[in-house]
Write a protein that binds this DNA or RNA. Structure first.
Length: 603
RNA sequence: GGACCCGUAGCUUAAUUGGAUAGAGCACCUGACUACGGAUCAGGAGGUUGGGGAUUCGAGUUCCUCCGGGUUCGCCA
């Protein structure tokens, strides 16, 4: 059973007091919307603040006078408050310090369970994220995608949702045929293990080979006097790639076997990257499995008159009644497009899971696509279409501009992870605090720090916004960073270890300890964890948890700096501070866990 | 051109969803270790929240307009 949140309790009491006060002092009934209670900002004295502006119409007096009269009344009837002050139109009420100690004891007794809310109890939720193409390795954009999807799944799980993580692998289409063709032409039968390359990088290399050869070919044609379009049309390479795609669609044994072989190389590479990143999936869908279902559904819709066929044989949906234009669903030759397979995948998923909600973690460049997808599913009569939602996140830009995969202007995921871990190692070796660890243990710690830095750097910004990824800043481990939070945690662990080593055992928290300002501030912050997690879940925003974790770590460091813990002579106070430290560690760890960041015990 | 999004210190960003004096980090300057971890802490400097107007007790946040940037509108995915 969860304990009552003391602060919520006090807020409720204040509301009740206000209703009575207005009735008694100004003889009127307060409308609920005029009641504005919030926690007091840090720069002001007090704990709970009443915004009195909306109440002026009842009092007919100045903000200051109204606030004072209300404060006077509340202090008289509610013994929970020890003082009040008025700043402009704000009435700040002050809770006694012993109340904060009581609050902490409540938190302490409930442990980290306190954090869990049940707002999503048993609601079946699918989260689709990652969604790679199989022609090239993962890059920085995928990293943001993966981290957001994974963190979201942890946050929602933490709030009681039944979450399934899914991935849709775009394993078929012209892009993989390009890699296949280039491998046939230039590969000389080599395999990733021959070259010592990761499979996804190996296949990606041939995709680049194709693009290079294709560019060379078309430029030659252009120099011979053709226009760009004509050159593209006459390209032998492109023609052969299309030929491969057609053969694949018709089930040509040789082509399908090559396709399977090259994709399997890619999957091996992807799996390694996912493992490095620390993300996973409950179920992986493949476009090659779902596009046919999509095609069948579109054909059904065509028979029912929901879609229409043009003279050239292509199939379209008319969305003009929704203020959008027409959208292609099947090509002239009857083959599927991107939208077709997404329809198939969505239906397949609903059949598999009967979800209440499904989130697609996909970049904001596809806002239009998902708007249309939802409309089409609704037109097809699927009631569950209301439950699908595009989790649209912003692009990752580099200091030199936008990432462009075709121009090779990308930050490779594996390279980036390696760089971060290496930086962590260098910094750690320089500080030299891990002498008594063996190499395996050290390696694990470097990994935690390097990835912690990367994950935090990306997750701390609002997902909806485009973000700037400056490599130089991302490897800074000071200030508002993942390693800062990890350091605070390691520091707490160190204190706790030291206490135990000395044979000191905390008995219990005494109720007659006198708290200082810092301790009260820390408790106030710890208490907020629950609402922060709920906010993150409701707004689908991991960054609020990242910012909270940072704020908490900073607050703890201040406390740690200003007061001694193990050196405290008053045993009751010492016990309290040890518990406060341990609990801070629990909440910091819990916050970072919701972001998918592992914490080192030492670093 | 139509639709949607963004603009906050030199840089990267936050702001309890309309509340108080717009918070932090990096970089810059100054100070704090014989202390439980200095990957830390304290202080300084840095802002007309792109411009203008409207709404009201109150606007970074809502509405209009202009300026600047982005995404998208493919028989690509």
């Amino acid at each position: 059973m969860l304990p009552e949140n003391y602060h919520k309790m006090m807020e409720k009491a204040v509301i009740k007091n206000l209703i009575d006060a207005v009735k008694k002092l100004y003889v009127s009934d307060v409308e609920p919307s005029d009641m504005q209670i919030q926690s007091t900002k840090k720069d002001f004295e007090g704990d709970i603040t009443v915004v009195v502006f909306p109440l002026l119409k009842y009092s007919g007096k100045s903000p200051e006078d109204t606030a004072s009269e209300l404060g006077e009344y509340i202090l008289e009837v509610n013994t929970g408050f020890t003082a009040y002050n008025v700043v402009k139109g704000f009435l700040n009420l002050q809770v006694s310090k012993t109340a904060w100690l009581d609050e902490f004891i409540r938190l302490w007794l409930s442990g980290s369970r306190y954090s869990f809310s049940e707002i999503g109890k048993d609601r079946i939720t699918l989260i689709e994220y990652s969604s790679p193409n199989t022609n090239k390795p993962l890059h920085l954009g995928h990293i943001r995608n993966n981290l957001l999807g994974y963190s979201l799944s942890r946050i929602l799980t933490g709030c009681g949702y039944k979450v399934y993580k899914t991935n849709i692998v775009n394993d078929r289409g012209i892009h993989i045929c390009k890699s296949m063709l280039a491998w046939q032409l230039f590969g000389q039968g080599k395999t990733p293990s021959d070259t010592g390359m990761k499979g996804d990088h190996f296949v990606g290399e041939y995709y680049v080979e194709f693009e290079k050869a294709y560019k060379k070919e078309t430029e030659k044609l252009v120099s011979e006097g053709l226009t760009r379009e004509e050159a593209a049309e006459q390209s032998k390479l492109m023609h052969d790639a299309r030929q491969l795609l057609r053969k694949w669609e018709s089930g040509d044994k040789e082509v399908v076997s090559l396709w399977e072989k090259m994709n399997s190389w890619v999957y091996e590479g992807f799996d390694a990257t996912y493992e490095d990143m620390g993300v996973d999936f409950d179920k992986v869908y493949y476009e090659s499995d779902t596009y046919k279902l999509g095609r069948d559904i579109v054909n059904e819709g065509l028979e029912k008159g929901i879609f229409h066929r043009k003279k050239d044989g292509s199939v379209w949906v008319n969305l003009s009644s929704d203020k959008l234009d027409e959208k292609l669903l099947l090509r002239t030759d009857g083959t599927a497009v991107y939208m077709t397979q997404d329809i198939g995948t969505a239906v397949q998923r609903y059949n598999d899971y009967k979800f209440d909600r499904q989130y697609y973690v996909v970049g904001n460049e596809q806002n239009y696509h998902f708007q249309v997808l939802k409309l089409i599913l609704k037109k097809l009569g699927y009631k569950w279409a209301e439950g699908i939602h595009h989790f649209s996140y912003g692009m990752v830009n580099l200091p030199e501009g936008k990432m462009k995969s075709r121009e090779g202007k990308v930050v490779d995921a594996d390279d980036l992870i390696d760089t971060m871990v290496i930086t962590a190692r260098e910094m750690s070796e320089e500080l030299g605090k891990l002498h008594d660890y063996d190499d395996k243990e050290k390696k694990e710690i470097y990994r935690k720090i390097g990835l912690g830095a990367l994950k935090y750097f990306i997750l701390k910004v609002d997902p909806r916004k485009n973000m700037m990824f400056n490599p130089r800043e991302s490897i800074d481990f000071n200030g508002n960073t993942g390693p800062f939070v990890q350091y605070t945690y390691a520091r707490i662990k160190s204190v706790l270890r030291k206490g135990e080593d000395k044979g000191y055992a905390v008995k219990n928290i005494s109720a007659d300890v006198v708290l200082n300002e810092k301790e009260c501030d820390l408790i106030k912050l710890l208490r907020r964890f629950n609402t922060v997690v709920v906010e993150a879940a409701e707004t689908l925003n991991p960054s609020v948890i990242a910012n909270y974790a940072y704020e908490l770590a900073r607050e703890y460091n201040q406390f740690y700096h200003d007061y001694t813990i193990l050196g405290e002579e008053n045993d009751k106070l010492k016990d309290f501070r040890i518990c406060l430290s341990e609990y801070s560690g629990i909440i910091i760890n819990e916050s970072m866990r919701l972001l998918g960041i592992d914490m080192p015990e030492r670093m």
